[in-house]
Design a protein around this nucleic acid. Structure first.
Length: 454
RNA sequence: GUGGCUGUAGCUCAACUGGUUAGAGCGCCAGACUGUGGAUCUGGAGGUUGGGGGUUCGAGUCCCCUCAGCCACCCCA
């Protein structure tokens, strides 16, 4: 034997074991359901794009994190960094066939060559939903509602959606004469929650050439806190001389009011005038979502309005708004909080293999149950009953179905409820009943078997 | 990409200031027990101590490089 190859995976890239993958798929299914409930339709795009498509917008930082290389034909290509830029390209290319508004969701991996940490990987799944071709605030409002419904549907209760509006910030920077350094100023501002006001001011002065007074003034707006109404009123006063800023404040207050009317509790939605977002392409509303018990892990769902992005690829004006759920980050958080389902099998029933001479009976019963929608795992070999039950127990099966010689003789089967530690008999000629019973039992207490909710 | 901490069996961790053949629990496989699961007992498999190089009579332990994980910066899902 030649030298063995060491099995390993690249930094920031991971394998997913069945238990992890079951949880992942459950989240994906939930996200898909919520997106569809709002009328978003699925699309997909290639992982690899021409480099020029990807480097168009986003900022120098994103360019640095881009995986890029020359393909066999010498073309410069890159792995997509997010799903928004590919969407802009996609829209520019296809909107004439699709028409507007274009509401799409896209669940797919993206790649960023940055340093790893908990909840930060080089390959991770994003679940994006966006509305293109509408400037209406309705789309911004629905974006909040989707984020809210999405997290609720995933079993999360304690989270805060923080919203801001780039117009508010830009209007203020205009008044302060900092318009030209907007990107750098906003980048410094974005760190407010993390490093505190002194360091933000320091960075603004050093990196953007702002005067101490200007920097102070930026923070005067961003640090407004308190009840949403009050924050908005104070912001409106500060920005009364700015048309852009006033418009931004107006949009924000409409957004918040509408979201509350639609059922988003006030404690889950707050206006935070320091939220800036690093990506250059945002123009209006911006969103970030934090889990109350786990703020360090960062935003699990962010996005915003980008009215000019598609113009990089098309002469057509196609404004857009949307957000992205960071599924892998969320999964890391939920794992830490013990909110993930524990089972390692998608099947509800383990069909015990007693003796191979009865295999045909097993196969018939399994088929009948599967035809009714029950997931059945037939044990492949006649191991000791104890072993098979232990296997079922360890893997997290809810039921074991025993069909031994005694049962066959009596024309019945024994259904063991491994959770309740009980068992009952069912006649073999009425397997629909058995199937109904199993499905009914399993549908009670849906979601995480742990029963925990955040 | 920069800096810090860490890296021993599938998992969680032991192994005095460098000292003989690297141990335990859990898990896995098998048996006690060819018909009843979170129990007990017995046995077994599983390690070139992340990988490579160096210092030394001798390295899991010290040094360098590399890979990976975590943390901070940066940025972000």
């Amino acid at each position: 034997m030649a030298e063995r190859i060491k099995p390993r995976t690249l930094k920031g890239f991971r394998d997913y074991l069945p238990q992890a993958m079951l949880a992942r798929e459950q989240l994906i299914d939930t996200a898909r359901e919520v997106f569809r409930r709002y009328g978003f339709a699925p699309i997909d795009t290639p992982a690899l794009e021409y480099l020029e498509i990807l480097t168009g917008k986003g900022g120098e930082e994103t360019d640095k994190q881009l995986y890029k290389f020359q393909d066999h034909g010498g073309r410069w290509v890159g792995l997509r960094f997010d799903l928004t830029v590919p969407l802009a390209r996609f829209a520019a290319q296809h909107f004439q066939q699709l028409g507007t508004p274009l509401k799409r969701y896209h669940i797919a991996p993206v790649w960023r060559g940055e340093n790893t940490q908990r909840g930060r990987y080089r390959e991770f799944l994003q679940c994006d939903f966006d509305t293109l071709g509408s400037e209406s605030l309705t789309a911004d409002i629905e974006t909040v509602l989707v984020i809210h419904d999405l997290l609720r549907a995933l079993g999360l209760e304690e989270f805060t959606i923080r919203v801001n509006n780039r117009r508010v910030l830009n209007g203020w920077l205009e008044l302060l004469g900092l318009k030209d350094q907007a990107t750098a100023v906003l980048r410094a501002l974005d760190k407010l929650a993390k490093v505190g006001p002194e360091k933000v001011i320091q960075e603004m002065i050093q990196r953007t050439g702002a005067t101490p007074h200007q920097a102070q003034e930026v923070l005067r707006l961003a640090q407004i806190q308190g009840p949403t109404d009050q924050v908005l009123r104070q912001a409106a006063e500060l920005l009364s001389c700015s048309e852009l800023g006033t418009q931004g404040v107006e949009e924000l207050s409409q957004l918040v009011r509408a979201a509350q009317v639609a059922g988003v509790p006030p404690q889950r939605l707050c206006v935070d005038l320091s939220i800036a977002r690093g990506l250059d392409y945002y123009t209006g509303t911006v969103y970030e979502t934090f889990l109350v018990p786990l703020p360090q892990i960062g935003s699990v769902c962010s996005g915003g309005r980008y009215d000019n992005l598609v113009e990089l690829y098309s002469p057509e004006h196609l404004p857009g708004v949307g957000a992205s759920l960071g599924l892998d980050r969320l999964l890391a958080a939920m794992e830490e909080l013990g909110l993930l389902p524990q089972g390692a099998t998608p099947a509800q029933v383990l069909l015990v293999h007693f003796q191979t001479q009865d295999l045909e009976h097993y196969l018939q019963v399994a088929s009948a149950l599967r035809a009714q929608g029950v997931n059945v795992d037939l044990f492949p070999e006649p191991k000791r009953l104890e072993k098979q039950l232990k296997y079922a127990d360890r893997r997290g099966f809810r039921f074991a179905l025993i069909l031994g010689p005694d049962e066959l003789e009596q024309g019945c089967c024994q259904l063991k409820d491994l959770q309740q530690r009980s068992s009952r008999q069912f006649p073999l000629d009425e397997l629909e009943q058995l199937a109904q019973f199993i499905l009914q039992q399993c549908s009670q207490g849906v979601g995480a078997p742990s029963g925990k909710r955040l």
